[in-house]
Design a protein around this nucleic acid. Sequence first.
RNA 1: UGCCCGAUGGUGUAACUGGCAACACGUCUGGUUUUGGUCCAGAAGAGUCUAGGUUCGAGCCCUAGUCGGGCAACCA
Length: 676
Amino acid sequence: MTEASESLNFIEQIIEEDLANGMSKDSLRFRFPPEPNGYLHIGHAASICLNFGLGERYNAPVNLRFDDTNPAKEEQEYVDAIKNDIEWLGFQWATECYSSDYFQQLYDWAVELIKNGKAYVDGQSSEAMAEQKGTPTTPGVASPHRNQSVEENLELFEKMKNGEFEAGRYVLRAKIDMASPNMLMRDPLLYRIINKEHHRTGSEWCIYPMYDWAHGESDYVEQVSHSICTLEFKSHRELYDWFLDQIYDSAKLRPKQREFARRNLSYTVMSKRKLLQLVQSGTVSGWDDPRMPTISGLRRRGYTPESIRKFSEVSGITKRDSVTDVSLLEFCIREDLNKTATRVMGVVDPVKLIITNYPEGKEEMLIAENNPEDANAGTHEVPFSKEVYIEKEDFKEEAGNKFFRLTLGNEVRLKNAYIIKGESVVKDADGNITEIHCTADLDSRSGSGTEASLRKVKGTLHWVSIKHAVTAEVREYDRLFLDEAPDAHEDKDFMEFVNPDSLKIIKEAYVEPFLKQAKLNDKFQFQRLGYFTLDKDTTEGNLIFNKTVGLRDSWAKQKPAQPQAQNKPAANNQPQGQRSPINEIQKIAKKYTNLSGAKLEAARADIAKLAEKVEYDELEPLFNTAAKKVGTRIGVMISLGVLLKNGLERNDKIEAFIEAGLSDGNELLVAEAQEL
RNA sequence: UGCCCGAUGGUGUAACUGGCAACACGUCUGGUUUUGGUCCAGAAGAGUCUAGGUUCGAGCCCUAGUCGGGCAACCA
């Protein structure tokens, strides 16, 4: 299956256009520009996949450029983590670059700007400058230093660079337009003084360029053709272009900035600041806590690079903001792991089961398929004996016939072993079941080929032989937040939505001995439970498994009262705009003519109900609705009926509208008009 | 009160740039199955924010509105 007619996202379309307009394919070059002040998250993955994907698509180089212009926030630890994550995702950058590599060039260009009267040194307080900046609706006023002489500016800037001033004393500003409707054009800062060791340049510099000054010029130095960033930088584009204008040499390629929407994931937050807060407050164990939406967290949780790339691909690139449901991410990892994970058995919530007719002391090695999806995956052995653990929830003394598991008197198969039948239970003083006694059909061993082994029974259970069981710790994770968009509430802090039960630790789970050989990064499917991977906390003799994601579970959905209380909880108090009743009516009415029977009745009732809250003034303009939009006219007619019934006086416009309705070709409309 | 973006099933995206609104996830049926998984078959669900206009024809173009997001850090 090749691409039928693959559709391009809007960035690719822009590139195709540029190519069509004569840009050489060889001049395509991209970059991924993280600031090393935190770990990469699934949102960055979108940008990484986009940029590196473009590189692969056009066979063009992609630079990894660290945007390290603020030594107060940036650290080498983050540089290393970011590189590791990108490589893990399976991408290779052409050149590892740093904005700090260009500090000298940036400085030289800044001097040139000053000489050209395009920049000046300002010694006011940041408050004063903010004041002068004005507001989006009122123009700013010029700084008293705006027209300082070039010589004075040069001298001050030189002194700034030489460390003759304390931090914050002076800044270098571009001289653009204090009245621009774009706030960023009101003489933005180019340089500020920061007396901090830089992770790469050490104490060589004490003035550092601002993002806007550094970023576009870095793109230019690297001759990046398409500088792709997120939407909040849209208004920076004007500045980006202005800065380029100052230094641009037409013999060289001129980079262009284009913006796409950042990706949000439901039930989590996606800003480095907020993620850092989760880490620092101890809400999670670190940047790589398996509940974090970071690349490192997802990796530790058991996500594969393939699944994350697939997720990015499926999610697409656009300019509208959105919240992607985690279920899409979960689909991607299940899809990948289903094909690759080794099937094993483990019991998380055990109860003892004794096979009374199985010989005491007997042990057998049974054969277990490693992966039914992969014929070449091979098999491994599973030890079996008289006493096994099964999952507590797989047994009920009595149950309806929808319960495909073990009950007294019913048969089920123990996966890869025998068909057993529930006979009796042993309970403790409190009535808890401590043992389940069964008999096995000893001719029914899986794979033996006997007639009995081929019998069909309703259910199959996973199990672990008690004698051979290996104890393991299992960590199960739930969403970190109870709200779909925890940081979308103006009135509430996102921390208020932290899910107190997002981590469940099971200290004594039992797994089959095969798992003793498990290595970090191995992926397993605990049959009927979900996908698991070994956690890095594992030590010799103390296995720890992270649950990556559960299997799809159509049985859980049928169970009556779902404990899963937080499915779609407070999501409705979102600050979404309310539709007015008249808008609602229009919306319903629009599809009115497509309805029939009960649905039609319901729609009519909805409209009538909403009409109670509608003013005549809102309704009258809709009398002019085009004749072909019958649905809307019907809705208006129904609403009009309600208003008339409530005492509205008839006027010429109303009469004319009813008249027009009566002579319409649509029966429904005629009928409504006749009512009036 | 200014400027800039955006709006297509529940969710995320498509629609050859004006020609019967498609795909994936999710949901629901049924079948296969030694995983209530996978797989297979099928279904429901949007007339594309609203109104007007251009056109033989509009989700795509134009106008006006509505709603949502961004913009006033010595952050990036």
